[in-house]
């Protein structure tokens, strides 16, 4: 039976069949050792995968010459991160955080951290956001943080809601709308939508979502306040109607 390190090597082989077989073997292993009571085996497997991930060579700075290597690195990291996502814990966060600094590996490391449930994963995403560049990647970080909890997460999302890149700000308010805090309506509604009606509609929808989050959390008064404000605002018809119906109901 192949070791985790050997399977990880096959994942990075670039051979379709070998990669597939390693994926399947790791998926089986992940299920076998993912049950309660097998934490030590799970930690050992995660450690082995992370060690291979740490060894994936980043592409050279000269992008033109490095294209082939770069593609191979990305595919290898993709496979490793996906296998890791159901096994990794705090001990693997450092390796993944390092991957967030590599332009070829950062998206797949972000994806992996988004799926992980430990606090360190959230902290790594918060830290990465501080210096991240590129609209799509920054939106991805915010989306990942939208699946996390913690005061540092909330503060980062609030900060991002004021970001000068509209897509980042909109992603942030959509994430904030899942937090049951009526005061966030002011943060959400302050997002500049400029002349874009689609952006304005996204803000209105985020506010309606916040109202629903508050309702589910039992904050009826907070929800009513948000819904009433949206129903009376000059916003897109669909969220306006939804808010009005919520108030009426």
């Amino acid at each position: 039976m192949a070791t985790v390190t050997e399977l990880a090597g096959d994942l990075c082989s670039g051979d379709q069949v070998k990669t597939y077989q390693a994926q399947q073997a790791l998926a089986r292993l992940s299920g076998e050792i993912g049950a309660s009571g097998k934490e030590a085996e799970k930690a050992e497997a995660a450690k082995a995968l992370a060690a291979v991930l740490a060894g994936v060579k980043p592409a050279k700075d000269n992008r033109g010459e490095a294209t082939v290597d770069s593609i191979k690195s990305v595919n290898s990291a993709n496979e490793l991160c996906r296998a890791l996502s159901l096994l990794a814990g705090e001990a693997e966060v450092a390796v993944l955080a390092e991957c967030l600094k590599n332009i070829d590996l950062r998206e797949t490391a972000r994806w992996c951290l988004a799926r992980m449930t430990c606090q360190g994963a959230a902290d790594a995403l918060v830290e990465a956001y501080k210096t991240a560049t590129g609209t799509e990647y920054r939106v991805g970080l915010i989306n990942a943080l939208g699946r996390k909890q913690g005061s540092n997460v909330l503060e980062t999302l609030k900060l991002a809601a004021a970001d000068k890149e509209p897509e980042v700000a909109l992603a942030a308010v959509e994430a904030l709308a899942n937090t049951p805090d009526a005061a966030l309506d002011a943060v959400i509604s302050s997002v500049e939508s400029g002349s874009s009606s689609r952006r304005a509609a996204r803000v209105a929808r985020a506010r309606v979502r916040l109202g629903s989050t508050l309702l589910r959390a039992g904050d009826d008064a907070g929800a009513k306040k948000v819904f009433t404000a949206v129903a009376g605002a000059d916003v897109d018809e669909a969220p306006k109607k939804a808010a009005a119906a919520a108030v009426g109901g």
Partner: peptide, 14 residues
């Protein structure tokens, strides 16, 4: 916990 991780799945950015 592991099964609950499979209830959803992160999406590729954006």
């Amino acid at each position: 916990d592991q099964a609950n991780q499979l209830v959803g799945k992160p999406m590729r950015a954006p």
